[in-house]
Amino acid sequence: MYLRRILAAASVSVIAATGLAACSSDSSGDSASNGPITIGTTDASKKAWAAFEDEAKKEGFDIKIQNFSDYNTPNQALDQGEIDTNNFQHLKFLAEYNKGNGTDLVPIVATEIVPLALFWKDHDSLDGIEGQEIAIPNDATNQGRAINVLVQAGLVTLKEEGLITPGLPDIDEAASKVKVTPVDAAQTPAAYGEGKPAVINNSFLDRAGIDPKTSIFQDDPNSKEAEPYINAFVVRAADADREDLKKLAEVWHTQPVQDAVAEDSKGTSVPVERTPEELQTILERVQEQS
């Protein structure tokens, strides 16, 4: 089938997550068929998914969790009706995917934000950081967010305030307190090891043995700048009002699942509660500015 061809051709990305199906429980609401609800993700081995599956079954849901090896395929599969929903991406990634592929995928339930943080070996504060060279990820997904982390820390000044995805040309170097140096995301831990301050993605912290709790600053998950990085369950626009999918996605916020999410992220993830309307407003704003 087409999905198998996609999976065979897909390569693992460095970024940053059948037919219509129903819940077996009458409480799940209207749905399109009697099979399991299929959910796509890129990290099915995490403890959160095992907890989610257990809690969903307790609520009477019949589900299937399908893992993908790259970050584009779960959206392709969703758009083509191969799965019912997915949970692996933040709103900025979704906005860029929709805009680049002409799709109309929408968020229905927020899950969490994983803050992006600044680390400085053998330091526990921003004291003395002025004049330093700070390494940040150079990929399109994380560079703008990393710059905004430094803006929120008061270390970088932009020529224009409020940019969702600022680039290097947007930095007012004369007014900034540090120099920003983009490097491959995988090299940010190496910069940290050399004694340079570095903004490091969570996925690389674990590999480098860096404790996430040793960060000296992180973006505020409640700030407007962080809104594009809210993760969410996503569906096709035609399924945005399916009550079974909404109720299933809400299972993510049950305590056993949240405990597992916290364990997976070593306590760095921050739960987010937003209405579908609020999520859609953020998505549209990000799509307009992307």
Rank of each mutant, 00 (worst) to 15 (best):
A50P: 03
A22Y: 01
I37P: 14
I15A: 13
G35C: 14
K64Y: 12
S33G: 15
T41S: 08
T41A: 06
E59H: 12
N67L: 01
T42A: 15
W49K: 08
D70Q: 04
K58Q: 10
S33P: 12
D62T: 15
A51Y: 01
D26C: 13
E55L: 02
I39Y: 04
S24Q: 03
K58M: 09
E53R: 09
A21C: 11
G19F: 02
G29Y: 01
S28P: 05
F61Y: 08
E59I: 00
T18Q: 10
C23S: 15
K46E: 06
S45P: 00
N34V: 05
E53C: 07
N34H: 08
S31Y: 05
N67G: 07
C23Y: 02
A44W: 04
G29K: 02
E53A: 13
A32M: 03
S25A: 15
L20K: 06
G60T: 09
F52L: 13
A48W: 11
F52C: 05
S28Q: 07
A17C: 14
D62L: 05
S45L: 04
F61N: 05
F52R: 09
G29W: 00
E53T: 14
W49M: 08
S69K: 15
G29C: 11
I65H: 01
S69V: 09
I37G: 12
D43K: 15
I63A: 04
A56S: 13
A22V: 11
L20Y: 08
A21Y: 00
K57D: 09
F52E: 06
E55R: 06
D54L: 08
D26Q: 03
K58N: 14
F68L: 04
D30R: 10
E59S: 11
E59N: 09
K57H: 10
I39N: 09
N67C: 00
A17W: 00
G40C: 08
G40W: 05
P36R: 11
N34G: 14
A50S: 15
A32I: 00
G60H: 05
A22R: 10
D26A: 13
A17N: 08
G60L: 04
E55H: 02
A17Q: 12
G19I: 00
N34S: 14
